[in-house]
Design a protein around this nucleic acid. Structure first.
Lengths: 217, 217
DNA sequence: ATCAAACTGTTGCAATTGCAACAAACTGAC
DNA sequence: GTCAGTTTGTTGCAATTGCAACAGTTTGAT
């Protein structure tokens, strides 16, 4: 596996590569690898660090009292995770973060980002600004999932989800980053009912699909 | 209606009242009143300002293509709204903000908060720090609603929602800040089916309720 | 106090969805 | 290549939920 180019990490946008190394030392960064299925952060853990996925994928899971776990969100290369907990007062996670495949994470101390540093380096101000943008964006993406989840029917949820993907990916062919089982879990619907509904939608000519690739007609 | 005390507004926490007036001028703040039912921000509007509710209540609505509107979230006195759009790059709202009663809002220019000001006033750093905390918290609260929405059954959603309220309010008697119709809308469930389920839950002795006040047994 | 409009409770019926069970297909390890 | 374990497709049945219609209640404006 290959790490994402640091210049392609949104949090580091606008920061000159020459300054990046200094910055990474200044904000106490470190890397860590996780195996497939390994837990990165457990619910109730203290989260003083912001995680950036360098390669691999991370799932945010929430387990209820009866052990039913649901897939709240997923994070891919270049994206942040745990940042909302890290910048909050309590810094305590309410979800579990799991590596769904071999994953490398760059951790940054949140306190170094939200408090302007003594040296007042210019790139420090820039990373704080980027952090604001990304926190807003993450909130918006949760609102977007709320919109999907507020659809009454399985069909409504599927259409809303596929439409969201279509907006992100510009292609006619929309590739879902989740397996069928994961997708049903993500949308909180029954897997077999989802398969049934997808079949109906294909019969009616609304969508077409093959494996994890969808086309809206 | 009476405005909330500025010292009780989380965004201003830790800022000395003497500095607050200077700060409010420095960050281009202004107040505006809205009547019951009035739209504060429309979907697709540019949102360069962070809103703080001084009195009243604001609902976040999302309408789909067929005109079905769903209640995503609600905001009361002292709380922020629109901040996630204001701090994002696009600054474009994807939802509609509506005053559900007579409401007064204090607006602050987001750019003045996310960019450290030239004067580098100390309280400016403090408000930026508070803003980070609150953005994280807002994200967490959306995740919490996602958890509620991921429950399969009406009963599951109701229990999860009431449990959340119980954590916020410390009392045995839990007062919902939404009417029945609004609550059904918020949870994306059928109103009559919700009433039916609430009745069943009372019959089974799981909860008791009167109007908008609930008790978990 | 009066009245219209909005909100809430109730109930039968229809439709969707969840569930269970099983077969087929796929994946990864050896 | 083989085989176990996992994922996916299929389908009948049961249960939940949405829908519609209506009656009773509350709210707010005049």
């Amino acid at each position: 596996m290959k790490e994402i180019d640091y210049n392609d990490i949104p949090l580091f946008e606008g920061i000159h590569p020459d300054n990046l190394n200094k910055l990474l030392i200044c904000i106490n960064s470190f890397k860590k690898d996780f195996e497939k299925g390994e837990t990165i952060i457990m619910e109730k853990d203290k989260v003083p660090y912001i995680g950036i996925v360098l390669f691999g994928n991370v799932h945010l899971l929430k387990e209820d009292i009866w052990g039913n776990s649901s897939l709240l969100s997923y994070v891919g290369p270049g994206e942040l995770f745990g940042e909302n907990f890290a910048v909050s007062i309590e810094q305590e996670s309410s979800v579990t973060f799991v590596a769904v495949e071999k994953t490398r994470v760059l951790f940054l101390a949140a306190s170094k980002i939200i408090h302007t540093c003594e040296n007042a380096c210019s790139f420090h101000a820039k990373i704080a600004e980027n952090m604001f943008h990304l926190l807003g964006q993450k909130s918006i993406s949760y609102m977007n999932k709320l919109e999907i989840m507020s659809k009454e029917s399985i069909r409504g949820k599927l259409m809303a989800y596929i439409s969201t993907l279509a907006q992100q990916q510009k292609s006619k062919y929309i590739k879902a980053p989740l397996s069928r089982t994961q997708l049903a879990d993500y949308l909180s619907i029954n897997r077999s009912a989802m398969t049934r509904e997808l079949g109906k939608m294909r019969d009616e000519g609304i969508i077409d699909f093959d494996r994890n690739t969808f086309v809206i007609k």
